[in-house]
């Protein structure tokens, strides 16, 4: 599937959050992920601290969707709720139309750090999610080897993670998520620990790989440019408690080009998003 978003007219490319998740999808396919009305608060020393408030978002099949927001806006909590690790106080999570609220094992996950298992070789790390679902090791390994060669990790199949550079480890971690049997991928700031050069290299690598092998992706990032470069839609979160402030449809056609970061429209969107982010940071900033 390609991005169905109609490029918005030059006037207002940004629509405010529409609760399309609340109503059943009118299209033929149910959304890969449908989060509706999620609220969550944690209690700390007897006080209840709201972390998420009425968050609704949708990831269509084979769509790349990003979440950006100030730190501490509850993005990771949202991931934990989608992944079934944390139960929401209110709201529901659906995948392909089926309710999965509080149910583990229905997403494929890539954490901030590669978190590769140091005692497993790279190929055994990459097949881990499949192995957990009972796949035959030898078969999974064979496919893993093909993929490792494809992403430039050929020759490192039997190496242990500590022998790889940070960027290579992240590639392996991404591959581990990509080869997982689950359809929806959650990527939690996967490049935040990398240096700037490696980071932009990894962004291009991920973009290319994803455009060839479409999957439904929900991506958390702090980088506006990263979000614009990769995604079809961006949800802008407020500071704590996290709510969705804006939904931005990114109008650029795919495959995305190297030079798109120079487009006036790209720069305009970037300015717009930066403005919102600054506002939010300023609201929560002086308090801490």
């Amino acid at each position: 599937m390609t991005n169905k978003t109609v490029p918005p007219s030059s006037g207002e490319p940004v629509k405010e959050e529409t609760p399309d998740a609340a109503s059943p999808d009118s299209g033929t396919e149910a959304p890969a992920l449908e989060v509706s009305g999620i609220s969550k608060s944690f209690s700390q020393r007897g006080r209840s601290i709201p972390v998420l408030e009425q968050v609704s978002l949708t990831v269509k099949p084979d769509e790349f969707v990003s979440i950006i927001g100030p730190s501490g806006c509850g993005k990771s909590t949202l991931f934990h709720i989608i992944g079934g690790l944390v139960k929401p106080d209110a709201g529901a999570v659906r995948m392909n139309g089926a309710p999965v609220t509080g149910q583990r094992g229905s997403v494929s996950y890539m954490p901030q750090q590669p978190a590769l298992f140091p005692w497993r070789s790279i190929e055994d790390n990459v097949i881990l999610a499949r192995e957990l679902k009972g796949a035959a090791r030898s078969e999974a390994r064979e496919e893993a080897r093909r993929w490792l060669a494809k992403v430039g990790l050929g020759g490192f199949e039997k190496a242990y993670p500590h022998m790889l550079s940070g960027g290579m480890q992240q590639r392996a971690a991404f591959l581990r998520a990509l080869l997982a049997p689950q359809e929806l991928m959650l990527l939690d700031e996967p490049f935040s620990a990398l240096d700037a050069l490696t980071r932009s290299e990894m962004q291009r690598w991920l973009l290319e790989l994803w455009e060839e092998n479409r999957r439904s992706v929900l991506f958390i990032t702090h980088s506006i440019e990263e979000a614009l470069l990769l995604s079809s839609r961006i949800y802008v979160f407020s500071g704590r408690p996290g709510t969705i402030l804006h939904t931005v449809d990114v109008p650029f056609p795919r495959p995305r080009r190297e030079g798109m970061t120079e487009y006036p429209e790209f720069l305009r969107l970037k300015r717009q998003l930066s403005g919102w982010m600054r506002e939010e940071q300023a609201k929560s900033g002086p308090l801490r």
Partner: peptide
């Protein structure tokens, strides 16, 4: 146990035994 790895296992639906 490393928390990130544990989170990965839980997200992937690993059983207690796994």
């Amino acid at each position: 146990t490393d928390r990130m790895m544990l989170q990965f296992m839980k997200m992937a639906g690993a059983s207690r035994r796994q």
